[in-house]
Design a protein around this nucleic acid. Structure first.
Lengths: 205, 205
DNA sequence: CATTATACTGTATATATATTCAGTAAAATT
DNA sequence: AATTTTACTGAATATATATACAGTATAATG
């Protein structure tokens, strides 16, 4: 359903920025001028695609009748997210004893939904801009791709690394710090469980 | 602010309710239907009165070009924080044209209050875990100490660096990347204005 | 007391705007 | 290989919309 293309994202951003700036939505012509299109139909088709995919609603016949649809974000809907610190060996990540505290934050704060914040230990991902005590917004999923920053569990130890599947039986978990070594996981012999992936980061100095 | 009449208040309320309901402002005809007027000029004259008194702004020629002017809604007092992208030379950081969009976030999200998010360009602070396109939560202040990550303005260029006051007349702005050089500012000769300091960071992958 | 602001109806119109139709072309999907 | 989706240009048009103009009437203001 929700696969937005990069151009459609540009149009969606353009609408949001226009509303923030002026207080009302743009016309087709406004979007064209903003994004460099030469035909109003360019904007029109993108708008219809965004409407079809459920990102916006268009009031038929009305001028500037565009409204952005915010999923559960019925404006200002917030939620409490747990902050996970040191995860005890063997225990489920979200077990109560692992929750340090909670952070109140809007549901639509990051691009996609997430489930908890993980407090980072060590500097194995420092070249990716992830420092000690940073809070990684973790989305629980096993659908990860090469290059994703994943939260993985090997032998009851939780680690944050770049995911890189080399073959059907070999996954490499790569650090972003030359002082650390790549973890090679033989899927036939070792057990690898993907807890989720990073979709954002929060740092409080 | 001048005195608003009861009818003008009705029109103003009508506009706000319409925006809340549809996401965009009403036309003259919409207002007439809503409030029972029989001529579009009824709405028109009320709108012009509201404009003259400073309650709304009307974009000339634009359809639905009404925006409600709300002093309480000016950035900082609520939970909407502006995201500042490329700052044009010479213009104030929070000038409207520099605001890319806004982010809704709790006031107490970071340890101390802050004023806006600055979108980072370049990698001069990468060893401090600040990467391109990261959003730095900036607190507007000139009260900075050595070691703080400051947002400074030198010759109309905005830069993010570690602050280090060496003496009464020498301030060094240190990058966190060996490929960049420390900026030495002679306070007697050069002008240095401290916009504020970083009190947190937000990254959205 | 003249003037201005408020509060309307009613008509008219230039133009702002959505929207359709006719094409082209590349990429993705089936 | 055929079809759909994406991504555009360019022109045409019905209509949605702002806005001016012509009135009427009451209340406030200087």
């Amino acid at each position: 359903m929700k696969v937005i293309t990069s151009q459609q994202q540009r149009v969606l951003d353009c609408i949001q920025i226009y509303i923030n700036k002026t207080g009302f939505p743009p016309t087709r012509a406004n979007i064209c001028k903003e994004l460099g299109f030469k035909s109003p139909n360019s904007a029109e088709t993108h708008l219809r695609a965004l409407e079809k995919k459920g990102f916006i609603a268009i009031e038929s016949g009305a001028s500037r009748g565009i409204s952005i649809i915010n999923d559960e974000n019925s404006y200002g809907s917030k939620d409490n997210y747990p902050v996970i610190g040191l995860v005890a060996a063997g225990s489920p990540t979200l077990a109560e004893e692992n929750i340090e505290r909670t952070i109140n934050c809007p549901k639509s704060f990051f691009e996609s939904k997430f489930d908890y914040f993980l407090k980072v230990k060590g500097l194995s991902m420092k070249d990716a801009g992830i420092m000690e005590d940073d809070l990684i917004a973790v989305k629980k999923t096993t659908d990860v791709r090469n290059g994703d920053i994943v939260i993985a569990r090997i032998d009851d130890e939780v680690t944050v690394k770049f995911f890189n599947k080399k073959s059907a039986k070999l996954v490499e978990l790569e650090p972003a710090n030359e002082d650390f070594e790549t973890i090679k996981v033989n899927l036939e012999r070792d057990e690898l469980s993907i807890e989720g992936k990073s979709i954002g980061l929060l740092r409080r100095n």
